[in-house]
Design a protein around this nucleic acid. Structure first.
Length: 259
DNA sequence: ATGGCTATATGTTATAGA
């Protein structure tokens, strides 16, 4: 089962590039972030025509997440527990049953800039909520994949210019510590389990020729429960997508698991 | 780079992203 995460930065703007990537990469499951669309405005037919089941947790203009799956999506949850007043659409999860059942979460973690400030406080509070929910997911003792745009640069080697990010919410010690707290509950970060060293990125800014200069950061991650990590066969970044026509500023990151 | 670009809304500019 090939599972991918892709922050597409606007579903309408990616109406050509996203289907083109699906046809080439043929993922079984994709979690999408920043669809920037309401549920009603989501072009479901683009994906249903390709054989994908579609579940959307949308929001007008900003945020918004979705799951596409070649297999049926069961037991869909459309919010991160822990704050009923949170109206930002940043979490969706569902179960996909292949050879075994896999719980797949699609998340769009808050950016948090500027830091310090209320947006940074929201980011850290959201991560504390995610830690609680992640522990509950681990307790199920089944394959769980938490995939998405974490908006966290885990280590200096995950940025081409780490010195430029020292005061940024994506690289602040508080953000990285909160990320580690979730990871160390017992998850495996898929890409790092199979690839070492620097130079691997999942985002390049549209500005200042960041792509041409390979000035990127690695912020899109897949965290696997032990039962999922045992099934992992591969983990890669589809870097070439960034060079395509009208690209998102993120590229897909994916795993292959024996499930 | 303190924002050089991009996307959305229903705009003639503001807001957000990372």
């Amino acid at each position: 089962m090939k599972i991918a995460t892709f922050n597409i930065n606007g579903i309408k703007a990616r109406a050509e590039a996203l289907p083109a990537w699906l046809d080439q990469a043929k993922p079984d499951v994709v979690v999408l972030q920043e669809i920037k669309s309401s549920d009603d405005g989501f072009p479901r037919e683009l994906f249903e025509d390709r054989g994908y089941a579609v579940e959307v947790h949308g929001q007008k203009s900003f945020n918004g997440v979705a799951i596409l799956s070649k297999l049926p999506l069961e037991d869909v949850r459309r919010s991160l527990p822990g704050d009923e007043t949170d109206e930002q659409a940043r979490w969706i999860e569902a179960t996909v049953v292949g050879r075994t059942a896999v719980r797949i979460c699609g998340l769009y973690l808050p950016n948090g800039n500027p830091a310090p400030g209320p947006k940074f406080d929201y980011k850290l509070a959201w991560m504390a909520r995610m830690k609680v929910h992640a522990a509950a997911l681990l307790a199920m003792e089944i394959p769980v994949v938490m995939a998405g745009d974490y908006n966290v640069i885990p280590q200096a080697e995950d940025a081409a210019k780490p010195e430029a990010w020292l005061d940024d919410a994506l690289f602040r010690p508080e953000s990285r510590a909160a990320y580690r707290e979730i990871l160390y509950l017992g998850f495996t970060e898929a890409f790092r389990a199979r690839n070492s060293g620097g130079g691997h990125y999942s985002f390049w800014d549209y500005q200042a020729g960041a792509w041409q200069r390979n000035n990127g950061i690695r912020i899109d991650h897949l965290l696997l429960s032990p039962q999922a990590a045992d099934l992992m066969r591969d983990a890669r970044i589809d870097k070439g997508v960034r060079a395509g026509d009208k690209p998102s500023d993120h590229v897909p990151v994916w795993i292959e698991i024996d499930a």
